[in-house]
Amino acid sequence: MRRPQASALHGADGSSRRKARRIAAGLPCLALFLVLAACTGTPGPPAPGTNPAAAGTPPGAAVASSAPPATESAGTAPVHAPPAVQERLELQLDTPWAAVFLPDGTAVISERGTALLKAVRDGAATTLGKVPDVAPAGEGGLLGLALSPHFEADHSLYAYTTTREDNRVVRLTVERGADGSLTLGRPQTVFTGIPKAGTHNGGRIRFGPDGFLYVGTGDAQRREQAQDPAALGGKILRLTPDGAPAPGNPFGNAVYSLGHRNVQGLAWDEAGRLWATEFGPDVDDELNLILPGANYGWPDVTGAPHRAGFEDAKVVWPSTRESSPSGLEISGGTAYLGALRGERLWTVPLKGTDAGQPVAYFTGQYGRIRDVIRAPNGSLWMLTNGKNPDFALILRIPQ
């Protein structure tokens, strides 16, 4: 069942705001306060070098009640430089879904509907190859990508694909010739049997710091699967590079966590904790801290209802119009989430196992954001989705 829509949290009370103003008035540099206002959505001139299109947290966003309420109001959040666009790459992409970076900095991008892999070097995209046996339909097609942690030795690129029978994970080789050109090998099937449907296919894959492959799946419109630890739908899976259940998995099979509706993003913080983004139904998009064997509630609950036996989300967006969070990256203690329906970049400060108040940037400026990826040089790439042609934005982020 769906949980009733939660109300938004609005930060500190009036006395806290008055205290914040007194503190700000005593600062030796007024510019510091103006930077603070620009980062949190309070009216004020943008800091030098920041993007003036940054937008603050709308009323629809709320920190889940499982996490302590954010202690900073719009006038007292930590001072930092907001993300700013450095470059826009007009790559002429067709519904891109995911990207990874080769060791030399070349980006490889998947296109959901064409099943093509595009290689981006020096600001230009070329076709690396087409992944065979992909059957694009609805939200399915060529989806997530993951680079082997031993790529220099095995040249392996993993892809999550929709076929006529199922969703599956395949492994391909990417070889560089003497002339510097890249060639794509034929896929080798690694893991099969993930349920498919027109929607709720999941699709994000990523290698964790433990060297195992994590796979986010959807319930494939069969809600009951999400609560069944023997089913693959509505789960995060944990696999060896060859597709076997990873040692130590909590249920003795491939399943790492359950009770998910449609996992869309996976990322690890600096302490090695796994976080994931997930689509809600018409309420309660989520940012979750993933624990082995934990149950995240779908379809019985959504968000953070404090129900025994279920793990609360750390951040809940009660209105899916504000988010629909897809790709996820974590850098410098901040989670960066691309929003599809919300058409913005969300940032969420992380402190240990807690998450703070979300702040939005670029609202409505670039359309749907499908993926957010950190490049080897520390910049952040955002892939738009549905512009046709789509493009990539390179962001400068706080270090």
Rank of each mutant, 00 (worst) to 15 (best):
A125K: 02
A125R: 03
T126I: 02
T126G: 03
T127P: 01
G129L: 03
G129A: 05
G129R: 01
K130G: 01
K130I: 01
K130D: 00
P132E: 04
P132D: 00
V134G: 08
V134Y: 07
V134L: 06
V134M: 09
A135N: 11
A137T: 01
A137C: 05
A137W: 04
A137I: 07
G138W: 01
G138Y: 00
G138H: 02
G138R: 00
G140M: 07
G141W: 15
L142K: 12
L142R: 10
L142S: 11
L143D: 05
L143R: 09
G144W: 09
G144Q: 03
G144E: 03
G144N: 09
L145I: 07
A146C: 11
L147V: 15
L147K: 14
H150G: 04
H150Q: 14
A153Y: 13
D154P: 15
H155D: 00
H155S: 05
H155K: 14
H155N: 09
H155M: 00
S156H: 14
S156D: 11
S156R: 15
S156K: 07
L157N: 07
L157C: 12
Y158E: 01
A159P: 06
A159F: 08
Y160P: 09
Y160S: 00
T161R: 14
T162F: 10
T162M: 15
T163Q: 03
T163Y: 04
R164T: 14
R164K: 13
E165S: 15
D166K: 06
D166R: 09
N167S: 10
N167Y: 14
R168N: 05
R168C: 04
R168T: 02
V169T: 08
V169W: 13
V169S: 02
V170G: 07
V170W: 11
R171M: 15
L172Q: 12
T173H: 13
V174F: 07
V174I: 15
